[in-house]
């Protein structure tokens, strides 16, 4: 039986593993942390249908319960090498594993908001990231720096994405709709709290997204301001003062808010960068480069080495899962060809 190693137990890794297992392939699923679906666990609801993230976690975790899938959690794969007939994986403890094909699904990490110091993350308690907000929504405790219910929550788009200065020129794709989703959640949980979103332009690319954006304005009264926030400062009462420009009105803007939520963009994860470099398949910004985004998007140019999900570019959970399915098919095809050659 052919063996496939999948690195990264996120939605993409698990989906690909389960499909391959169902197709008679023996899969080993490596994960750096002790539990799978780490990033997904930070989420409360998923856009656009506000489905609970926990449901998806449960469904995906269920797919691992097959004896064709061996899970190796807490194993940090540091290097992947082609050795004549098979791929050799080396972990950080120098242990080695072998496989006929390898799928890299090492995913993303969020931009470290400390790097945009002018926005005051880590300095003012009222400044949080979209991940912190997701946690608050999840636990139903949206609180300001003083532990009270906020009266105003402000979201700022494009923190660490579409940003020349931090070196990330690309669009992180999911933050626009995430902010809309979170603003709606804030208004649902705290009907008295104002919510506003500062944006450069809103990219409502997916099915149902535009409708969500409309609902946010019409039903939930979320206000959208076109302009970037240039700096944030703390006030004596623990709030945050923002300086911005409303570029539609053409006026400078100064306002106070209880919470400033920084919509941090997606960056290639550490593991993605390390493996991309080790296998020489690293593309722009440390993401993994596929051979061709149209027809060979899971192939890396090295026979038997595949990539799926957000290790290639920012993607939504659903896109990531779809990408994993196509990767599973590509791997299956590959395994069949080497079977014939043998």
């Amino acid at each position: 039986m052919k063996k496939v190693a999948i690195i990264g137990a996120g939605p993409a890794g698990i989906e690909a593993a389960s499909i391959l297992a169902r197709n008679g392939v023996e899969v080993t699923l490596f994960e750096k942390s002790e539990t799978p679906l780490k990033n997904l666990q930070d989420k409360a609801f998923l856009f656009p249908n506000f489905q609970s993230a926990q449901e998806i976690i449960d469904d995906l975790s269920g797919k691992l319960l097959t004896d064709r899938i061996t899970t190796a959690f807490g194993v940090d794969i540091a290097d992947v090498k082609w050795q004549g007939a098979e791929w050799k994986l080396v972990d950080s403890k120098e242990q080695t594993y072998v496989a006929d094909a390898v799928l890299i699904a090492t995913g993303y990490q969020v931009f470290d908001a400390h790097r945009k110091e002018e926005l005051g993350y880590g300095i003012y308690k009222g400044v949080i990231t979209s991940l912190d907000m997701e946690q608050m929504i999840k636990h139903g405790k949206i609180l300001n720096a003083n532990g009270d219910e906020p009266k105003r929550v402000t979201f700022l788009q494009c923190v660490g994405s579409r940003d020349e200065k931090s070196g990330n020129h690309y669009c992180s794709k999911i933050c626009c709709v995430t902010a809309v989703k979170q603003a709606i959640e804030v208004r649902k949980q705290l009907p008295k709290c104002e919510a506003s979103v500062f944006y450069m332009d809103l990219r409502m690319w997916g099915q149902g997204f535009e409708e969500m954006y409309r609902t946010a304005q019409e039903k939930y009264g979320v206000s959208f301001v076109r302009g970037r926030i240039s700096e944030a400062a703390g006030t004596f009462d623990g709030r945050v003062q923002l300086k911005s420009e409303d570029t539609l009105m053409g006026l400078p803007l100064k306002m106070n808010t209880d919470l400033l939520v920084l919509m941090v963009g997606m960056e290639a994860s550490c593991g993605t960068k390390v493996l991309g470099k080790a296998c020489d398949i690293s593309g722009d910004y440390g993401f993994i480069k596929s051979v061709n985004p149209h027809l060979y998007d899971n192939e890396t140019g090295k026979p038997g080495l595949f990539a799926a999900g957000t290790c290639k570019r920012p993607m939504s959970v659903s896109d990531s899962i779809n990408d994993a399915r196509s990767a599973a098919l590509a791997i299956k095809d590959y395994l069949d060809t080497i079977k014939i050659e043998n």
């Binding site: 110091e117 002018e118 880590g122 300095i123 003012y124 240039s230 700096e231 400062a233 703390g234």
Partner: peptide
């Protein structure tokens, strides 16, 4: 320094 509030704080 207003863009690096860590310093002024």
């Amino acid at each position: 320094s207003h863009l690096t509030p860590g310093i002024t704080e």
